[in-house]
């Protein structure tokens, strides 16, 4: 851990919030992708089954 001097709070907040924001963006994208993919596979399987 480097010595951040008297600006430690500012630097750590900036890094913390930014990384959380990026992680949230990635997480939401993955969650949405999974959900859509699962529903699509369900529908495709359903259509294949009877015909």
């Amino acid at each position: 851990m480097p010595d951040l001097g008297r600006y430690a709070t500012e630097v750590l907040t900036a890094y913390g919030v930014s990384i959380v924001a990026l992680a949230a963006l990635v997480w939401l994208s993955v969650r949405q992708a999974r959900r859509v993919r699962r529903r699509l596979e369900d529908v495709e399987a359903r259509r294949r089954a009877p015909g």
Partner: peptide, 10 residues
């Protein structure tokens, strides 16, 4: 000071 490190995000 150390605030320059914010540049890598900003």
């Amino acid at each position: 000071g150390s605030t320059v490190k914010i540049i890598y995000l900003h």
